[in-house]
Design a protein around this nucleic acid. Sequence first.
DNA 1: CCATTAAGATACT
DNA 2: AGTATCTTAATGG
Length: 208
Amino acid sequence: MEPTQFLEAQFEPDLVAQIKANSSPKTFKANDVIMDIGLPVQFMPIILKGAIKILQEDDEGEELLLYFLEKGETCAMTLQCCLGNAKSQIRAIAEVDTDVLMVPVKFMDEWAAKYSSWRKFVFESYHERFVEMMQAIDSIAFQNLDDRLSNYLLEKRKLHENDIVQITHQEIAYDLHSSRVVVSRLLKKLENRGDIKLHRNSIDLSNL
DNA sequence: CCATTAAGATACT
DNA sequence: AGTATCTTAATGG
């Protein structure tokens, strides 16, 4: 299937042509840093394949996982950067091997004025990310780590399209803002329940 | 072998 | 739930 097929499904033919003519396809390997905090935002990525992890950094330099972006989605932070300050507030890391269309930000204004489907796309992106961030806040404030870990693992399995996820307890701890020992404890609990199987550097999620 | 590092264990806050 | 510390196990030279 054409990776850009979803463009035709939601944008005017005219706009699809504009997008194709003015954006460059780019490929990232898993764990590549696509955008970093403080860097100028020159492109808006539209994801064709794969997934991107978006995170913030707190005052101590600790990372905070905001959300994952998937196929057909774009980063609302980029949109915001087009309106005012051009520096990125976030770090974006390829979660798996990922293909994106890099759209130069200079087209944002023009397309928003000209194409209603683009305005809709931008608004909906904002809305989706807003909802995701609300959920991220909610889960940190009110959910126990137990549930957050389970949700995190389910998300991983979906994004990687694989029951066996390559990850260390330490990396999970960073993403969930917890410590390695605590994550190990909770993972062991899940294993004893038969939900997962633990290995060095990987976790088998086929029974989760 | 040995060095490195992920993960397990224990004890304390 | 989190920190500190020690032990054990896997991995790669």
